[in-house]
Design a binder for these strands. Structure first.
Lengths: 227, 227
DNA sequence: ATGTTTAAGATTGTCGACAATTTATTGGCA
DNA sequence: TGCCAATAAATTGTCGACAATCTTAAACAT
C-alpha cells in the first residue's frame, strides 16, 4: 500500500529509517500511545546518536504521531474518542472536496483502473465474506486513489502525508474491523460512478456521507460499549 | 493578531526565536520565495550553530514555508498561482466545515463578542473607506475566530498552525488589497448571522461561497493581468 | 567545440560533549 | 504527618567537528 504513494521517497538517510521504524511501531502500538519518549533511551535502542533520533522525532511530529513541549520532551499522541471523531470531521471535509475535484481531474484510464480494482475487491470480499481485514486495506486504497485523483498537491500532502498514518494508528489501536464492509463497498461503487459521470457535486456529497456514516457507526459502537 | 492565538506558546528556546524571525522574513518576502537556504550562511547570519538553525528549519517545513530534499537542502516555497488556488480550495473545505461546527459549538458570549468586533470593523471601514489593509487584518481575524469556534483541535491545528502563515505569505507577496472589502464585510455579517441562528448547514455554505468568491476574484484578476 | 571523467570544493548528515532546564530526591520545618 | 525549600539527577537544547553526499571545476578524449 505504501508503495502506491508516488510522492514517498525511499528512505535514504539513517534518520529516514529510524523515522519509518518508529512510525510503524507507533501505529501498531508497539510503542504505546500516550507514553513519554526518552531520547537517550531510544537513541541507544536504535544505535544512533541523539541528533539523528531527534531528526526522526521531528518528522513524527510532522505527521501528528508525537507531540513536543519545549524543555520537557515528546509524548506519543493519545488515542481518544474525541480525537478519532475530530479526524473523521477533517476527513469528511477534505476527502469530500478531493472527491469533487477528482470528478473533473481524473483521467478516463485512471477511473477505469479504479473500477477494475473495485471489482477485484468485490470478488475478494465474497471469498472472505465477513473477514473485514482485506476490505480495510481496500478501503484505504480506494480513498487513497481518489485523493491522488484530485490533483491538488496541498490536499494530497495533508491527507496522504500528514494525516494518513494517524488514521492508520486509530484503525489499529481501536481494532476497527467494522461490520460496514459490504455497505462501504457499495458506497465506494456509487462514489466512483459519480466520478465517472463527472458529477463533482454529487461525488462530494456521497463521499461526505460515506465518511460521516463511518463516523456515526463508530459513535454508535462506542456508545454501546459504555453500557 | 498573533497574540490572539491561545495555542501559540511564547518563544522560549533560541530555535523558537530563529524560527519566528525566519517565518516573518519569509512571509514578508525578505527571504525570497524559491530561494535556496544555505545552512552555514544563515547560521552565521543569526549567530547560532547549525543544529539550532536546522531545528528552526524543521518547524518552517512543518508550516509549509520551506521544502527539504535529502542530501540536497532546503528551498523557500515558490508562490505560484496554482499553489495559491490550491490553498483556497483547502480553505474552502476546512473553513466551511469549521463554520458548520462553530454554529453549534460557539458559546453565546463568543458570538456576541465577534458581532461587536465585526461592528467595529464596519466603522473602521467607513472611516478608511477604500483602504483595504485594515480590512485584510479584520478578515484574517474573523476567519481565525470562527475556526477557533469550531472547537475541533485537528481543524484548528491545520488551519491556524500549519496553513496560516502560508496564507499570509501569499497575501503579502501577491499584494492582495482586494476590492472585495465591502462585499467581504457583508458576507462576514451573513455568516455570523447563520452561526447566531445555530444553522450549521447554512453557515458552512455561506463560508464556502465566501472563500470561493475570493478565489474566483483572484482568478479573474490574474487572468486580466495576463492580457 | 562538445561531452565525459575525475578531482576539488562546498553542503548536508551524523556524532559526542557541554550548557540550560526540568524533574526527582532529600532534608528541614510547621 | 504533611508541605515547602534546596540539592542532586536526569533530560532537553545547543555547540563544534567529522563523515558522507552532492555540486562545481577542470582536464581529457572524442
Amino acid at each position: 500500500m505504501n508503495s502506491l504513494n508516488p510522492a514517498r521517497q525511499a528512505p535514504v538517510t539513517t534518520a529516514d529509517k529510524i523515522f519509518e521504524t518508529m512510525q510503524h511501531e507507533i501505529v501498531e502500538g508497539e510503542i504505546l500511545a500516550g507514553s513519554k519518549i526518552s531520547e537517550p533511551e531510544l537513541a541507544k535502542k536504535y544505535q544512533v546518536s541523539r541528533s539523528t533520533l531527534r531528526e526522526a522525532l521531528n518528522r513524527l511530529e510532522k505527521c501528528h504521531l508525537i507531540e513536543r513541549k519545549a524543555n520537557v520532551g515528546s509524548r506519543v499522541v493519545e488515542c481518544t474518542v474525541t480525537g478519532l471523531l475530530e479526524i473523521y470531521i477533517v476527513r469528511e471535509a477534505l476527502e469530500g472536496m478531493a472527491c469533487r475535484l477528482a470528478a473533473t481531474a481524473m483521467a478516463d484510464d485512471e477511473i477505469a483502473e479504479l473500477q477494475s480494482i473495485l471489482a477485484d475487491h468485490g470478488q475478494d470480499k465474497k471469498l472472505q465474506d465477513g473477514v473485514a481485514y482485506y476490505q480495510e486495506e481496500g478501503d484505504l486504497d480506494f480513498h487513497y486513489r481518489v485523493i491522488q485523483g484530485s490533483n491538488n498537491q496541498q490536499l494530497i500532502n495533508i491527507l496522504c502525508g500528514e494525516l494518513y498514518h494517524l488514521v492508520r494508528m486509530y484503525r489499529c489501536q481501536f481494532g476497527m474491523n467494522s461490520p460496514r464492509a459490504t455497505r462501504a463497498y457499495d458506497e465506494h461503487k456509487a462514489i466512483l460512478h459519480a466520478i465517472a459521470d463527472r458529477d463533482g457535486e454529487l461525488a462530494e456529497m456521497l463521499m461526505r456521507r460515506h465518511i460521516a456514516a463511518s463516523r456515526k457507526n463508530i459513535e454508535r459502537k462506542l456508545e454501546q460499549e459504555k453500557l
